[in-house]
Design a protein around this nucleic acid. Structure first.
Lengths: 206, 206
DNA sequence: CGATCCATCTGAACGACGCTTAGATAACAT
DNA sequence: ATGTTATCTAAGCGTCGTTCAGATGGATCG
């Protein structure tokens, strides 16, 4: 039964692959990305420094597994936020806010996610089919209505995605702090920035 | 024994601080960010592994110096691009294209620049006064005209900046390649994405 | 039940890294 | 010439990613 899975069952330790990913995430949360060494992960999981190499080809592959979990959780967070509103524009904004909020709440994880993507010069494949990228695209498509070309849709999605990523990486910068408090907090700030992006200018019906 | 090192030199080596920064940039360009170790920089500069510590507190401070050069050159690139057009909207787009092009032409340098910023949770201070950020802001201000609040200006600048950074980091992703060739090349792609951002929606007069 | 297989894990080691310390060297000021 | 001080080297510490030979012990089959 379980033999069909590429990641099969436990032997000596239990499910060490799983334990390693969890240990990695624990280290990420508590000590940050700089402390995330393979040896530290092995230590945290209670195994020798060489043990991980029976489950992951190298450190990068372990990080890939961590990043994958991150993308799945980001997908879920976006999915949740889409139910917040029935107005197209609001839904789009809340999608953006949810994206950035996820990145800000899990900064180390988000960094691993994007570092992995940058190493491969590609976003995870799943995103194009059912993942976060697709959610953004669908939301834009719904807002844009019928008469919009595939190319326009793709470009708008990319534009929105880039803006989200940029804001995710920069919204913590000290230079913006005074503006944040002036606007009444982090979320108000994010909404205001997204509002000034005018991602909807192209399609807006109103 | 002062061998024919270039430029004016204070003490033993010549200007080792300068030589180290140049060596670092050489390594960055040829072997990428992963190969950029302090020891490698010292090797490249023809000096012992401990020598850099008389000029930089630690590796991070050397990278800061490299990053600073990067920001100065980015400022210059944006400055050049502003003279390309006299139409506000075109100028804004060409600013964005110049930004992303710089990042794409110097990927390793750009990465160092942003890694340094992220470590301090802040953009370089000079940017707010006369640097690239200020150029974007001024361009937007000119386009927006008189009746625009400081806050709106700031928000629009942040939005544009985030979009530029996001696109700089993601425009190389494989998922966008087909779209790029379909649109007729990298620059056309960048312009199209910026166009779909509609950063001007808020202020556009026409 | 016993022998064997083989995935899993360990211990030790290698080279490279960031960084520190103690001491050598050489430019400058006196 | 002498002393001062900035600059550089040599050696070493602890950590890292990774490899490899060998120990361990569950699974399989006689």
């Amino acid at each position: 039964m379980t033999l069909a899975q590429p990641e099969a069952r436990p032997y000596h330790h239990g499910d060490l692959s799983r334990a390693l990913v969890e240990a990695a995430r624990r280290i990420l949360e508590t000590d940050g990305p700089a402390a995330l060494s393979l040896r530290a992960v092995a230590r945290e999981a209670g195994v020798s420094p060489a043990a991980p190499y029976h489950h992951f080809k190298d450190k990068g592959q372990l990080l890939d597994a961590v990043a994958h979990e991150g993308w799945v959780e980001l997908d879920a967070a976006l999915m949740r936020s889409r139910q917040d509103s029935d107005d197209d524009r609001r839904r789009m904004t809340s999608l953006g806010v949810a994206y950035v909020t996820f990145a800000r709440d899990n900064p180390a994880l988000y960094r691993v996610m994007y570092d992995c993507s940058r190493d491969k010069d590609a976003l995870p494949d799943q995103m194009k089919e059912e993942g976060a990228y697709c959610q953004v695209r669908n939301t834009i498509a719904h807002a844009a209505g019928e008469g919009v070309s595939e190319i326009d849709l793709e470009l708008a999605t990319i534009a929105a995605w880039c803006a989200g990523h940029g804001l995710a990486e920069m919204s913590g910068f000290k230079q913006f702090e005074s503006l944040k408090t002036l606007l009444g907090g982090e979320e108000a700030f994010l909404k205001a920035v997204f509002d000034h992006l005018g991602m909807f200018a192209k399609f807006d019906r109103g």
